[in-house]
Write a protein that binds this DNA or RNA. Structure first.
Lengths: 133, 133
DNA sequence: TTATAAATGCAAATCATTTGCATTTAACAT
DNA sequence: ATGTTAAATGCAAATGATTTGCATTTATAA
């Protein structure tokens, strides 16, 4: 699906900047920081715009916003929902196809003060094989 | 168990500051920000010390470090492992006793480049009943 | 009791993120 | 096609959490 349509479906006004950013995220298919988005786009737009755009995409659940324990946040477009495990020593990452979704119904039914779950952030941390030698 | 023993077990040198911080976290049993720790301790120690202490406790898995989508990080001592759901509108929180632990073996067995999982961060977001009226 | 590595406090620096505001632009109605 | 208007953008400056360097203090083990 074209970015133009995705934005329309989600009631997000189409702009060149948003197209560039979403195109990039769809292509990359892995978590990327604001700084790196900026670099990859040849610093063609203001950092502020990137911040605001990603915030909007995240609100609409178009992308997954996460954090790997370091200072900056990461954003990812996911064709299929998944999470990651990050090596605490070298930062290497691997996809984790978890099945927490299977538990969602049960989790929901146990909630007292919430009517529904919008999204969740799940990250694993460990030591990769290289670093544990 | 006394803080003194906990620290010893985890090979963390005992100090008055660490005792105060861990005592507080054990008492509170809910996520608390650095600022609030500072307040609750009557600003009796430097913020830097709190940062460094919490980092150390987190490394040793004595406490759970997390983030609820806002600017600051939160730290929690958990008698029984759990997570939270946070209302996107008002920030209200509720405990979520998830069963992701049940999935850990399966997750581990699917990892290619990791020898083990050290810890995980899981947070849910949604709308609380009050706010969804 | 002493030696020593580690912890602390303080001040200053860092760095991701946010804000205000003037300007530009996409979307929609005319 | 054009004008209107709310929303998006860029820029500069502010914010605020977190980190760093360094001199001083303190807990631990010989």
């Amino acid at each position: 699906m074209k970015v133009r349509e995705i934005l329309k479906e989600n009631k997000i006004r189409f702009t060149e900047n948003r197209e560039k950013i979403l195109d990039l995220l769809i292509k990359v298919q892995s978590p990327i920081s604001i700084k790196d988005i900026n670099k990859k786009l040849g610093k063609s737009m203001d950092l502020t715009t990137i911040y605001r755009t990603l915030e909007k995409f995240t609100e609409k659940n178009l992308i997954y916003k996460t954090n790997f324990g370091d200072t900056e946040n990461y954003f990812e477009h996911q064709k299929t929902h998944h999470h990651h495990i990050t090596c605490k020593k070298c930062g290497e990452k691997e996809e984790v196809r978890t099945c927490i979704d299977k538990n969602l119904k049960e989790i929901k039914s146990n909630l007292k003060n919430f009517s529904y779950i919008n999204n969740h952030v799940l990250e694993f941390f460990g030591t990769c094989k290289k670093c544990s030698k």
